[in-house]
Computed example of a mutant assay.
Amino acid sequence: MATTEIGATEQASRRHTRRLKRQDGAFFWLAWGSAALVVVLLLGILLSLLWESLPSIGHFGLPFLWNERWSPAKDIFGAAAPIYGTLLTSLIAMVIAVPTSFGIAMFLTEICPKSLRRPIGIAIELLAGIPSIIYGLWGFFVLAPIMQHTVQPFLINTFGDLPIIGFLFQGAPYGIGMLTAGLVLSIMILPFITSVTRDVFETVPVMLRESAYGMGMTTWEVVRRIIIPYTRLGLVGGVMLGLGRALGETMAVTFVIGNSHRIASSLLAPGTTISAAIANEFAEADGKLYTSALVELGLILFVISFTVLALAKWLIGRTESY
């Protein structure tokens, strides 16, 4: 009788083991397939963009990248102005948003009273849920008039005649332009960088903070010497997340950048970005070369975004080695 019970128990155990192995195998292939699907989709997008861009690539070649002229009526297209606008507006946004986000995260984790941390944190995160077109409308109807009548005249009168940097603030105060677009982008990416930064700041062990304060460090010293070095990987990831959002933004930028296919040295001048140019002109592109040029702009944006992500991965790898 005992032998029979032992045999039944062993059989049940074997069935259970086989079932667990099947489940583990199914999970393994599901996870592997999900990862492979992402790669396949990425390659599919790249190949489709490349295929549709072939007429433009064959016609214009590499000069397409540095040619500024954009004339659909004459089938002359160049990507220099959209590339310049994309990079410049993203740079302006990052210069404004990164230190501001870090400051907000430091305030929430180190200085802010506990009763206010949650309401302020929720308010910042709600900014990320606002549709981009709302930011664009706000920028066009509220921010642009303020820039035109107050901020840009001040910048022109104060910095326009200075050597070295004066050329950045010369021209007419249109209200819209590169600087306005960069400001709107900075507001849009601020909640993303702030949320990531705050979360990684909170991962610092309490003992490290208390030990640093116990040694007589000030709040700034604790942040600079303890918190930032401990969380540098997360900080790089948050910054790159914001940069990726800024590079690909479309509707908000379209409202306030002016949509001018030209390169101007002044930050106050109108311009365009890759995504804004595609959004504005794709519906009216009536020729094969015109459509192909717009798709090639999308291919360039894809390459820029991929390069940014690769650079972020490289920076994280270098940070891990130290």
Rank of each mutant, 00 (worst) to 15 (best):
M1F: 10
A2R: 14
T4F: 13
E5A: 15
E10Y: 13
Q11I: 06
K21C: 12
R22F: 10
D24C: 06
W32P: 03
G33Q: 04
G33W: 02
A35M: 12
A36R: 11
A36I: 09
L37R: 09
V39Y: 10
L43C: 04
I45V: 13
L49G: 07
L50F: 09
E52Q: 15
P55H: 06
I57D: 00
L62H: 06
L65T: 07
N67P: 00
E68R: 03
W70H: 05
S71N: 10
A79S: 07
P82H: 07
P82L: 04
G85K: 01
L87Y: 01
L87W: 01
L87E: 03
T89G: 03
L91W: 01
M94R: 00
I96E: 01
I96D: 03
A97S: 06
V98F: 02
P99D: 08
I104G: 01
M106Y: 08
M106L: 13
L108Q: 00
T109S: 06
T109I: 08
E110G: 02
R117L: 11
P119W: 07
I122K: 15
I124Q: 10
L126Q: 11
A128L: 03
P131F: 15
S132G: 08
S132V: 07
I133D: 04
I134L: 14
Y135M: 04
V142P: 00
V142M: 05
V142Q: 10
T150A: 14
G160E: 00
L168T: 05
A172E: 11
P173T: 09
Y174N: 06
G175C: 03
M178Q: 03
L179G: 01
T180A: 01
A181N: 02
L183P: 00
L190T: 02
F192Y: 13
I193S: 01
R198A: 06
R198D: 12
R198Q: 14
V200H: 11
V200T: 15
F201A: 04
S211Q: 11
S211M: 07
E221G: 08
I227Q: 00
Y230T: 05
Y230P: 00
Y230A: 08
T231R: 05
R232F: 13
L233S: 10
G237C: 08
L247Q: 02
L247W: 00
M251T: 08
A252T: 05
A252L: 08
V253E: 04
G258K: 01
H261F: 05
R262A: 11
P270V: 03
G271C: 05
T272M: 02
A277S: 12
A279N: 08
A279V: 08
N280S: 13
A283E: 11
A285K: 09
A285C: 09
D286S: 14
G287F: 14
G287I: 15
L289V: 14
T291F: 12
L299H: 02
I300Q: 10
I300Y: 13
F302Y: 12
V303P: 00
V303M: 10
S305C: 12
S305N: 05
S305R: 02
A310Q: 08
L311R: 11
K313N: 15
W314K: 14
L315S: 13
I316D: 11
I316Q: 15
E320P: 05
S321D: 14
Y322C: 15
